[in-house]
Computed example of a mutant assay.
Amino acid sequence: MKKLLVLIICLGLLAVTGCTSDTQQSADNSKNASDTTLKIGLMPDIDSIPFIIAEEKGFFKEEGVNVELQHFKSAMDRDSALQSGNLDGGVSDMLAAGFAKDGGFDVKMTSMTDGNYCLVAGTANNVQSIKDMKGQNISVSKNTIIEFVLDQMLMQNQMTEADINKTVIPQIPTRLEMLQNGKLDAAVLPEPMGSIAIKNGCHLINSSEEMQINPGVMVFTNDSLQNKSEEIKAMYRAYNKAVEYLNNTPQEEYMDLVIEKAGLPPATKDALTMPKYHEAALPSKDAWEKSIQWLNQKGLVKETYSYDDMVSDILSK
């Protein structure tokens, strides 16, 4: 009887040990998967579309990388997620990268993106150029890429802030609605909102694309660049496959999917003509120098960070 009791106890201990081992193994596997998953923050704009396509077409899987796409409605929420360690990288812009660096948070720009920012005149506004807009109300979001683009337009036309009235409306949908309803003379809008406004009776005055200024970038945390470099490289290979797909596929074949996944307005389908996307490449040095000069002149960033301070050339490594 005693031998039987000892045998039962031993078998019980083995079972418990086995369960503990399985539980530990499961936890380790989960941790390893989390350690190698690349978490990317996206915004509801055309810069994010190649990532959505790469996921939906299985290009990330083909390159052997686990990518978790997280969608954000505001740049502030995206930046908070980056700084709290909940993201490895995200679709961003040079101004946001400069703010992060100045705030002691080390991020690097790794590639340019293909966004476009449009100065659009309202339905009742008959101006044909920004020079005709002296004294008019132009809506922007303060201290952002939107205001930066407007200031670059003014400078290229030998104008200053004093020549126009900046109306600050942070929320893009509100800005779009007020413009379409004739409550603003003009507004700077990102795509696809610019195209939607034009489709609804407004008209284009200028754009960052026409000015050949591209402040849109991908950023990654320094920690992720050091510890997930192979995953980032694989992500970019998948990104380039998505770019090839987008440039060679009629947009009606994927637009419904993109609108759903990116959270874009349904009107995007009929209003937006997709840009020609570019394979991943380093951001423009000239665009960065204009961005940091603007940040310094406005007193928004103290240091004059160099291009090399801000860029990681992981694409060539």
Results as ranks from 00 to 15, higher is better:
residue 3 K to W: 07
residue 4 L to T: 11
residue 6 V to G: 00
residue 7 L to A: 15
residue 12 G to S: 06
residue 13 L to A: 08
residue 16 V to Q: 01
residue 16 V to P: 01
residue 17 T to R: 09
residue 17 T to A: 15
residue 19 C to S: 13
residue 21 S to M: 13
residue 21 S to D: 07
residue 23 T to N: 10
residue 26 S to Y: 11
residue 29 N to V: 08
residue 30 S to V: 14
residue 31 K to V: 11
residue 32 N to R: 12
residue 36 T to F: 02
residue 36 T to A: 05
residue 41 G to D: 09
residue 42 L to W: 06
residue 42 L to D: 12
residue 42 L to G: 07
residue 43 M to P: 00
residue 47 D to F: 03
residue 48 S to G: 14
residue 48 S to Q: 10
residue 51 F to M: 15
residue 52 I to H: 03
residue 54 A to V: 01
residue 54 A to H: 01
residue 55 E to F: 03
residue 55 E to N: 13
residue 56 E to I: 03
residue 58 G to D: 03
residue 60 F to N: 10
residue 71 H to E: 01
residue 72 F to P: 05
residue 73 K to N: 13
residue 77 D to W: 02
residue 77 D to A: 09
residue 79 D to S: 14
residue 81 A to C: 10
residue 82 L to P: 00
residue 85 G to F: 00
residue 87 L to H: 05
residue 88 D to G: 04
residue 94 M to W: 03
residue 95 L to C: 07
residue 96 A to V: 11
residue 96 A to S: 14
residue 97 A to S: 08
residue 100 A to R: 13
residue 102 D to F: 02
residue 103 G to H: 10
residue 103 G to E: 13
residue 104 G to S: 09
residue 106 D to Q: 12
residue 108 K to I: 02
residue 108 K to Q: 06
residue 109 M to F: 02
residue 110 T to P: 00
residue 111 S to W: 01
residue 117 Y to L: 15
residue 119 L to E: 09
residue 122 G to N: 06
residue 124 A to N: 14
residue 124 A to T: 15
residue 126 N to G: 01
residue 127 V to R: 12
residue 129 S to I: 09
residue 131 K to Y: 02
residue 136 Q to L: 15
residue 137 N to S: 15
residue 140 V to H: 10
residue 148 F to I: 07
residue 150 L to T: 01
residue 150 L to F: 02
residue 151 D to R: 08
residue 152 Q to F: 06
residue 155 M to D: 10
residue 155 M to I: 09
residue 158 Q to S: 12
residue 159 M to D: 04
residue 159 M to Y: 05
residue 160 T to H: 04
residue 162 A to M: 08
residue 165 N to V: 11
residue 168 V to Y: 15
residue 169 I to Q: 00
residue 170 P to I: 04
residue 172 I to D: 08
residue 176 L to G: 02
residue 177 E to I: 04
residue 180 Q to L: 15
residue 180 Q to W: 03
residue 183 K to T: 05
residue 184 L to F: 06
residue 184 L to D: 06
residue 184 L to H: 07
residue 189 L to Q: 02
residue 190 P to T: 08
residue 191 E to P: 03
residue 192 P to K: 05
residue 192 P to D: 04
residue 193 M to P: 00
residue 193 M to L: 13
residue 197 A to G: 04
residue 200 N to L: 01
residue 206 N to T: 07
residue 210 E to C: 00
residue 212 Q to S: 12
residue 215 P to I: 09
residue 216 G to V: 10
residue 220 F to D: 08
residue 223 D to N: 15
residue 223 D to R: 13
residue 223 D to K: 14
residue 226 Q to P: 04
residue 232 I to E: 05
residue 232 I to K: 06
residue 233 K to F: 03
residue 235 M to I: 05
residue 240 N to M: 01
residue 251 Q to R: 03
residue 254 Y to Q: 01
residue 256 D to G: 06
residue 258 V to W: 00
residue 259 I to W: 04
residue 266 P to C: 08
residue 267 A to N: 05
residue 268 T to G: 13
residue 268 T to A: 12
residue 270 D to P: 03
residue 271 A to Q: 06
residue 271 A to R: 06
residue 271 A to I: 12
residue 274 M to N: 09
residue 275 P to H: 06
residue 277 Y to P: 05
residue 278 H to K: 15
residue 278 H to D: 13
residue 279 E to L: 01
residue 282 L to H: 02
residue 282 L to E: 07
residue 286 D to L: 11
residue 288 W to A: 05
residue 288 W to H: 03
residue 290 K to Q: 05
residue 296 N to A: 05
residue 303 E to Y: 00
residue 305 Y to Q: 10
residue 307 Y to I: 08
residue 308 D to E: 15
residue 309 D to R: 03
